[in-house]
Design a protein around this nucleic acid. Structure first.
Lengths: 148, 148, 148, 148
DNA sequence: TTTT
DNA sequence: TTTT
């Protein structure tokens, strides 16, 4: 019997651009956007402050992608949960190249919106990014009628 | 508009007992079991080693509960992901009491099984604990046919 | 040889009160504050929207407690990482009671401050809550001079 | 004032090789090893089972690297916590290339060892990977003498 | 009540 | 290159 593995990444950062959508035949789509996380620390040897920005390639799918495209703007703060996936591609010289993406499985917007009511306005827990559930609240809760 | 919150707990520990099931009218069920996590450290003042065991009340629902009941045995190591929920109850004197549970949303067995093939045998990623998905692999992957 | 366990909780929520400090002989201190996380979902049986607020008892120690007391105000949004600890106490009738705390190990403020420069202003990664490091940036980075 | 970001990855997987050490002048060192996580799911379009293995480049520092080198063997299961860092390098044609590493901040061994007593034998919580603390238990606990 |  |  298989025993399990875990591949989970949790990010809080600011988007570096709007969501770029790609639509596929059959109705699927993905959205991509860069997310920046920062760290600052003192280099103990030189006593200098060091600032690093790490850029993450976020990939969201289907309904979740559409929600992100609609409500997530460049510079917004967002919580992203997902898994790491490194994909191989060929550059223009036919060389193998690798890029590491974050395949988003949950997200929640952290930038306060004072705008009108939105689909996400009613959700205060991270949204699952399943095909047909992206705009819905967590689904563990709503699929039964247990008395607790 | 609401901006989001997060309530996530991630545990690796050993079960202190088998899963106790409760079945409800309408077909729902929950399973409960205790999970132990440990910490050891040196008390710097006394230079003594201190061992602490923390017991967590794990609650699993529906199909996931049935999978756990079937394959998770007392003493097994397991990864549990979920959210914290504190519930109020009355003791036999009518006093309000509170108990904090971990409502399990994902799990993966970490004790190697050399037994016969099981429903979980084919899943090496944490299992989502939704009503109808408990025995299936992560559902983000299988609900589209995107070319990546 | 021991194999490990994990006891980790990650929360994003709003503080329900200012930080209450307790000082101990010897110079130690702790801060306590309540943190609210929310979930909303549709009850599929009744089709009603359900809103739940979960309150977490956050416990921070020493320097980290002092930073929180100084900069974290009621209503602020904050990321808290820690471990679960359930403690036993006696009520006024001598009955055993249990309360579950979140012992904070890292935190990062999520409410934008437009105020003057603060100790936390220079840290954009979660702060470790060790006794002597609370106001410092992550310490993994600054304790060596490795060329990367 | 800066508000915070989070860059956290949590993995459970199997090592694909022993730890490769690099030592630096001044006494620092790093260890590197590959970690595999797996996912399996049913492609709903083709009804075929799909198996994917994801390889992560784990980087551990200093004392933690030495502990891993000593006790972590090819094929072992391990929990790794860290942050994502993508670094740039030049290939032999001078082209910019990028590789994404997991800078390990905590780890705990999940493969039971029946061997002799080890430095890690007394720790059942994830080990922090700071320069001088790698072999020690979590340090939040041992740096004060608070009465709880 | 687990595990090492 | 792991594991089931």
């Amino acid at each position: 019997m298989a025993s399990g593995t875990l591949n989970k990444i949790m990010l809080i950062g600011h988007t570096g651009d709007d969501v770029k959508m790609t639509y596929f035949e059959g109705g699927g789509c993905i959205g991509r956007f860069p997310l920046a996380t920062n760290e600052e620390y003192i280099n103990k040897s030189t006593n200098e402050k060091v600032s690093n920005t790490e850029w993450h390639n976020i990939v969201v799918r289907n309904k979740a992608a559409e929600v992100c495209e609609k409500y997530l703007k460049k510079g917004d703060k967002v919580y992203i949960e997902g898994r790491i996936k490194t994909r191989k591609w060929q550059d223009d010289k036919g060389m193998d190249r690798y890029t590491t993406d974050v395949q988003c499985t949950e997200f929640t917007f952290l930038t306060p919106k004072d705008s009108v009511n939105t689909p996400t306005a009613n959700s205060t827990e991270p949204q699952k990014t399943q095909a047909s559930k992206a705009q819905n609240p967590p689904i563990e809760e709503d699929n039964d009628d247990l008395p607790f």
